[in-house]
Design a binder for these strands. Sequence first.
DNA 1: CCTCTATATGCTCAAAATGAGCATATAGAG
DNA 2: CTCTATATGCTCATTTTGAGCATATAGAGG
Lengths: 306, 306
Amino acid sequence: MSSKCLAPEAPSLCNAELVAVVFDLEAIGEGELTPGVLTVRAGEALPSGSLRTDHASLQRGMRHWVESLTGYRLGHTEQLYTFADTLSVGDITRLVRISYLALLHPSVDPRNWLSIYEYFPWEDRRKEGEAHQVGSIARRMMAWALNDATQRTRCAVAFGLEGHEWNDELVLQRYELMWQAGLVPESPDGVGENAIGRAMEHDQRRILATALSRIRAKIRYTPAVFDLLPERFTLFAVQQAVEALAGRPMHKQNFRRLLLGQQLVEETDSLDSNGHGRPARLYRFRRDHVQECYLTGARLPLPSLI
Amino acid sequence: MSSKCLAPEAPSLCNAELVAVVFDLEAIGEGELTPGVLTVRAGEALPSGSLRTDHASLQRGMRHWVESLTGYRLGHTEQLYTFADTLSVGDITRLVRISYLALLHPSVDPRNWLSIYEYFPWEDRRKEGEAHQVGSIARRMMAWALNDATQRTRCAVAFGLEGHEWNDELVLQRYELMWQAGLVPESPDGVGENAIGRAMEHDQRRILATALSRIRAKIRYTPAVFDLLPERFTLFAVQQAVEALAGRPMHKQNFRRLLLGQQLVEETDSLDSNGHGRPARLYRFRRDHVQECYLTGARLPLPSLI
DNA sequence: CCTCTATATGCTCAAAATGAGCATATAGAG
DNA sequence: CTCTATATGCTCATTTTGAGCATATAGAGG
């Protein structure tokens, strides 16, 4: 009855690769923020490496590779997903990729960091006006799906067309639809010339999409944003961070009300005098108090926000 | 710069095991429902087996094992988590366990199915009165944590003590705290006599806890319950299913209002005349309509419900 | 037939949360 | 002193929750 008894064939061994998606926040120009991702090989890949016998755990192995490849030491991390490659004929071993998500406080060193919106330009909808090509992409997608009702619905849902709302968590779905439609460089029968967004090795852009989706979901019911902010920050900085991650603008007064209502932050006596208008008060994340309530895994903070 | 270049040691190979947590709903006595889990070896283990080269994907491999061990063919599945075992000295290969979650419509064949509350009796709080030992467990936990403030807070949060609310999604946290406290049979320095709940091989009870936690989260923003129900059902049956999974009672009229408001179900013309009082109308899940809106991964239905 | 009981279903109402916007406060620039 | 820019405080209509009362419709027992 044991599964071992039922497997007369020797179980095929495999090579486990650990992949890390590390996010932070980058300042780009006039108080503009964008989420940055830590890359290697000039943005072509995520930090990764094989699981070895001297790694005490999956997480440790992943940390080891990030540290030796980029020098960064990670804080809290979270497992994302495990992918298996498709096997070529004759392969003896197969590859399993186990991916992790980590957040880092802003770093002064911009080496190896790239905006995630370089990879997914269509995901940044903070400025409806310029609207990074979203309209054009949506049109190309609907044209592609013209003859298939199922695909057409999927595109409409994914890209917020035909009465559907734009859902910022559908990052992976959008990427995969575009992959199928041949709009990204990795597409199998893609039209390379019109491909959108920067490519990555293997299926790593899928991993990145999964990570973006996860962090967008996570900031809604978790105080995760604070892992990306400095020790002291203004409330508007929190808003800008959430906006940068979610890729959409939000209502300032309501954001403030919600944030203060959650008891997540406490005032300091200092002000931020760098801005143009009235100086903003600096706040501090109540890490101890919040951990007590939520870090155990409980749901809650920042409910709808968006 | 490549990660491969930085790894002079040969990457250690590993054995990937696929583990399935399959849930359904079981009737036990007077209209009582409980979530059942599909097991092998008389409830001692979850269906599992090694990933092989003839498996087209992780998911396919997992399906293969479930089918050959239990005869069940799975529908929609979802990856849960990947665990690595701790390595003993001298081991050449290590084991990586990739776990999946699946839901099945009620089956007539009760073989191999066991109530998840056999493994986690303290998680069923539908009847506050009898309260499966919850009070006693909580007391033992707080006694154990007496000298460590951090542990005491964790226990209070996990078990809903000292002003904290009971959070039904903290299944894994509760299990791990009890493991540390020596209240479960798997505990390292456990007191076997007073151990609570049925044991499982390896760390499979942790996998089961992860699965229960996931499904409890999932039914809140996803129409997942309907994968556990027959084609036609009463609204109260939906409620009982959600209650069985969440392990807590809910308000009947509000549940109904919410469910109907979501446009998730449609009336049929039949009634259910099995009950004692006024016959209840039978409904049908609007699978097509709902898939269009949500199955792409979108959030929503059944918001707070509990 | 009527009555009782059990369940389904319909409806109300106060409290809380949300979405939008107006009003005021406080800095630097001119 | 005035203008502009941003921070911060407050209001109000709408929606969503949470709780419970009231009515409807079946079978059981007289």
